[in-house]
Amino acid sequence: MIAAIVKGNCLVEIAEIAEPSIAKPTEIKIRVISGAICNTTDNKIYATDHPEKNWPFKSFPFVLGHECSGVIVEAGEEVNELKVGDRVVYWTVEGGAFAEYLILDTADSTVSKINDAVEDDTAAMMEMVIGSARLLFSANGEQYINQDSTVLVIGLGPAGLIYTRLALLMNARRVVCAGRGELRINTAKSLGADAVIDVNAEGYLDHLHESLEGGADIIIDATGGDVVSLMTAMGKKGARVIPYGITPFDWNDRLSELTKAGLLSPDFSGHETARHAIRWCVEKAEAGLLGLSSIISHRLPLDQVGRGLDLCRLEKDKTLKVIIQISEF
């Protein structure tokens, strides 16, 4: 099969490699239709001499990608709720997605069937959508955002834009976004945010505080930076922090700042909440309600995946989500 192989720092090649085989009874094999570049994670392991220092902690060479969707072509004997021919989405897999075939272990990944009415572009992004949504649910399925919630989304890359849409779909009372860049700001507005504040504008903190109308109940960090001081300044007492961005610090070293400000500490739940999130996300996608087509800025064939990675890293002001066409089914 063909696959995108990262062989060195900013060196990716499309090569023929052995087709993977099912090794466990809980695994499924999918023929990948399309994938999506993760703007942050994929570049952290592509534009580096030491990919093993970042998730999924693999050394050169490796098959790139963890966001994709496809159709099951083989299923292990202990896979009961899915069958050959089902189109599926999931969260998550430790690489290997930018190839004609991918093995998913249903014991490790949360996997769901999704109907053919959902566009391939949307299905390709579902790994990120589900991964974002899982932080908005408790382990028992409670939805953190409701009609009484004022939500602050910090950062307007693809993750922040996805969170903007998810908050609106959860019927938040008010969704306020803070970010930079004309494309990102305009996209947040088009998705339906109640207010979008340019953090490069003079007096933006005053504008943000005014837009929140008394403070945020839910604060979502989609920046990958250090925005703890902004969280503590804008959150109400008891506000919940949703930490999606990959921060340059250990959260354990900063929890005291949140506690002092009266904010709830982040919950880093995994597959428990993903099971609730995947059902909710698939339901919204199949009903045509996700409305995320505007966050796609580029669609490229697999042999241009290197260009897509460079767009995400070097042309951030012009790039949002990049879809990679893997194969026709």
Rank of each mutant, 00 (worst) to 15 (best):
R313P: 00
K58Q: 15
R313Q: 13
R184Q: 12
S327K: 08
T232L: 10
R307Q: 12
N140E: 15
L64C: 05
A133L: 06
Y163F: 15
S211H: 01
D303E: 15
L11T: 12
Q325C: 04
G192H: 09
L258G: 03
L302M: 15
G35M: 11
K321E: 05
V322P: 07
E213A: 15
G192N: 10
L290N: 01
A75S: 09
L135S: 07
V151C: 11
A239L: 02
V71Q: 13
G8V: 03
S190D: 08
L135G: 02
V151Y: 07
P51L: 06
L300Y: 14
I2D: 04
A261L: 13
S269W: 08
I130S: 06
D121L: 01
A23Y: 03
V153T: 12
M170R: 15
R240S: 10
L230E: 12
F62Y: 14
N171R: 14
A201Q: 15
I28Y: 01
G306V: 01
M231Q: 14
L208G: 02
K189L: 03
A36K: 00
A99D: 10
V322D: 07
C68K: 01
G141T: 04
A172V: 10
E100S: 09
D310W: 11
I220F: 01
I295H: 06
A18G: 00
R299A: 08
A178D: 12
R240L: 13
L309R: 03
A3R: 03
V6Q: 02
Y244F: 14
V73L: 08
L183P: 00
R180E: 01
G85K: 09
E315R: 14
I242R: 02
K236Q: 13
L152Q: 07
A233M: 15
N115S: 13
G95L: 07
L264N: 11
D108Y: 01
N9C: 12
S34T: 13
M128F: 09
D108C: 02
S256C: 07
N43F: 06
R31C: 03
L161H: 01
K113C: 14
E100A: 11
M1I: 12
Q143V: 13
N54C: 06
